[in-house]
Design a protein around this nucleic acid. Structure first.
Lengths: 235, 235
DNA sequence: CGGCGACGATAACGTAGTTCTCGCTCTGCG
DNA sequence: CGCAGAGCGAGAACTACGTTATCGTCGCCG
């Protein structure tokens, strides 16, 4: 985390020690700065958790973090940057969580876990996760800052690509481009649910997974899988 | 459109003429009110078209419509109600458009047209339609006013259910509940695209359709369809 | 120890949504 | 035809929020 921009050295090697000197002289400040940024982020997370809403004000963040507006705008270009930072943190956590949950099993098992978790996180109703609405609010950011959000999705996307690649290598998939298939599964899994008309209850994660499964694997593979679920879930 | 609430008559039949009398006496005012509302809506649509953005102010609407703020808040509970009204109008247009485009062909052809149009409308990039961003902004409304938006989706949903029902009757679909399948196809088709990481270009409507197709129909049906596309598109 | 950069508190500004006030007009009705 | 009252137009005012600027202070480094 510290010393992240040392590689900006371009020409002379003498720039190295100069950078290092500057680095050492400003290390304390940088650490303090990082701590302050983190305090802002933590305060924001707390408030979002408490209100179960992202409709907070910058002022609330500032009050909670025992800092000042001045500092806030010194570290963030504005509210949207704070949100983006939160979203990236949350994305890292999410990827880690999915990694963990989808560690074992064949590629389709792993993909299933990923889809279930993702869809669950994006559902407005579910409260299984602690911060359920970062993805919900990602929809907002996606409109105002599409590029940044897309970039933030990259690690998750690449992880899914890895799984789908494995599935393709194992011959589970219909012929096609794995990256495209991963992209479309990701897209489908991260839709805020609860769309369709009145009486219908929202689509569940399991339904979404069934949908994606059949979309990307041939019938015989899917049939073999669903038959297997009757028995235990060994290796 | 006029005389929509006559059916509130409950007890005596004599309420009919009274209602009718009141109706006639207030018809003029009601027509004027309807016209004013429509002027607001038209102005909003114009401005949204021009700016290609839904970031307009109430004041702009008022100026354009040659009316006053006072009137605006007399007819709408706030900006969100205007947006909701616009969205419902747009939804009606969209359903009509999809109805037209998906009139002919077997149920899967019709569903394909519906998905392509829907996905196209929801894509931020496409400019094929005149008002491309009502669905984009529906995502926003979906978070702040989920119930109303869900209700607004109902006619579209029911139309899709009709198509999917036909497909089920024709034996094209995997066994399952048509309403659920329609709901999930709708949900997938109305996601704002452009999610996945950096270099990847967004999912196209055709890709989305292929995805949905395989998700709901068995392989042999899909194979028969894709073979058929080589030839012409007769009945 | 002196300067300097960072920080905290707070006021101020711009914008947007919403409400209020006032005066006029136009409709409905006797 | 004339009156009463509701509805409406114009615009100011109010509120909330994001953002920026000012100024005094404190701590660190030389």
């Amino acid at each position: 985390m510290a010393r992240a921009d040392e590689d900006e050295v371009e020409a002379g090697g003498d720039a190295v020690w100069r950078e290092r000197a500057i680095e050492r002289s400003t290390r304390g400040a940088r650490e303090r700065a990082a701590m302050r940024v983190q305090q802002f982020l933590d305060a924001a997370r707390e408030i979002i958790s408490e209100k179960d809403s992202i409709e907070f004000t910058v002022q609330e963040i500032v009050d909670r973090s025992k800092q000042s507006l001045r500092s806030f705008y010194q570290y963030f270009d504005g509210k949207h940057e704070l949100l983006l930072a939160l979203f990236e943190e949350e994305m890292a956590d999410t990827v880690a969580r999915i990694r963990e949950a989808s560690a074992d099993g064949d590629p389709l098992d792993r993909l299933e876990q990923a889809v279930l978790i993702l869809y669950d996180i994006c559902s407005p109703e579910r409260r299984s996760s602690i911060q359920p609405l970062f993805f919900e609010f990602a929809q907002l950011l996606l409109i105002s800052h599409p590029d940044e959000v897309s970039r933030a999705y990259t690690p998750l996307f690449e992880y899914l690509v890895g799984i789908v690649d494995d599935a393709a290598k194992a011959g589970f998939l219909r012929p096609g481009k794995p990256r495209r298939q991963a992209a479309i599964v990701l897209q489908a899994s991260t839709t805020t649910a609860g769309r369709s008309g009145g009486g219908t209850h929202p689509i569940t994660g399991e339904e979404m997974w069934e949908f994606c499964l059949h979309a990307i694997v041939p019938d015989d593979v899917a049939a073999a899988r669903s038959k297997r679920t009757s028995r235990s879930k060994s290796t």
